[in-house]
Nucleic acid binder design. Structure first.
Lengths: 207, 207
DNA sequence: ACTTTTGTTAACCATTTGGTTAAACTATAT
DNA sequence: ATATAGTTTAACCAAATGGTTAACAAAAGT
């Protein structure tokens, strides 16, 4: 009656999830085909609908996991109590690590976010559960008042940090082509950015 | 025999182009429906195929125009001979202007670029016609040698500038929600960034 | 053993979607 | 005015696509 953990069942459902993950994150919801997912999983298309009601449901299952992977670190930086500079270093470094392992992530998330912003935001943060930027903004204000950093609108600082961290993954095809970078070189550049971005920021705001 | 510029023809073809522009740039190639475009244009679906062979052809027509709108400024900054700081200011300011008028642009371009990077890049820059970053890189090296700016890998400087300029448009839904910004406030922030980004960069690299 | 539940498939179905056809309509040239 | 070339449409078509069904197989419960 209750779902048992038969070895076969698990492996089928997980094959589906792995396949759906691959297809959805590379093609997006609109570009993904249920048949592609079935093929990728090596099973019959009907089995997809046996485990997951329909395409939307399957997509949402994948999507929520990926979005949770992408966003919580933004929340984290808001709420942690580490010193500002350390916080910046942690954020950049952890984010880049995450995206080096899942380079599709930024495109996937940004793409789906723009496809239907309302539904998206509600699904990622429940209507209530929003990260509170107050702590982060306050912290910057404190540093300014203490005379340790220059006056800057915290929002710009926040945007700059996130932009420099994420965008290179989105613009990769453009960067590698126009800067004549090999894949290896691009990855090296990205690796450098873990230190380069915090340095760039701190050089800019430190008094 | 030869196509005449009858008023009606022009207006039909242009209605199609305007409609295709709207649908493609908001939904993307995969999300766009030929019927939607026809409806938007207020004409019969068959007429789309009368003026444009098929969906791919129509898409490409729109796409090339938009991509040309998005990319040439990157080329420009490489090739101009303006002083470095001025170049940065021009780039940021002009780019933001362009995207304020066409906020869909970054998403559309990034999206299609990731959908098929090879075809994309070839279509935007013909296989030969690549911008040469050498001038820009040299210029930064010169400034470093002249002791006017700190040592920095020009590639990082380039990535930072582009990232800070473009990304806020891609992440808008996230920013407005998490920072509790109204549309008006968001636009004000963006407006500020025309000065804020160059300042942020120059503060960081100036000796 | 045999009944029931769960897992899996091939074949099928309905809708959507890009694209075509043939006919009708409009403007222009003769 | 009428023939002609260009424009527009309604109706249609075939392929793609998401989803269902019915039958069968494998496990689990009794």
């Amino acid at each position: 009656m209750v779902k048992k953990n038969k070895i076969k069942n698990i492996s089928a459902e997980e094959k589906i999830l792995a396949a759906a993950h691959k297809v959805f994150t590379t093609k997006g919801m609109n570009g993904a085909r249920m048949q592609d997912i079935a093929d990728e999983a090596g099973i019959n298309k009907a089995l997809l609908h046996y485990y997951f009601k329909d395409k939307d449901k399957l997509f949402e299952t994948i999507f929520v996991v990926e979005a949770q992977r992408f966003f919580p670190k933004i929340t984290m930086i808001f709420q942690s109590d580490a010193p500002l500079f350390e916080k910046i270093e942690n954020f950049v470094s952890e984010y880049i690590d995450e995206m080096q392992e899942n380079p599709y992530l930024p495109w996937f998330v940004i793409n789906e976010m723009n496809r239907d912003p309302e539904k998206f935001m509600d699904k990622v943060w429940g209507k209530e559960n929003l990260p509170k930027p107050a702590r982060f903004l306050e912290q910057i204000e404190e540093e300014i008042k203490a005379g340790r950093i220059k006056r800057i609108n915290p929002i710009h600082l926040f945007m700059n940090m996130i932009s420099m961290t994420i965008f290179p993954f989105l613009g990769k095809p453009m960067f590698v082509r126009n800067l004549r970078l090999s894949d290896k070189q691009f990855n090296e550049i990205i690796e450098q950015r873990k230190k380069e971005i915090p340095k760039f920021i701190i050089d800019s705001i430190k008094k």
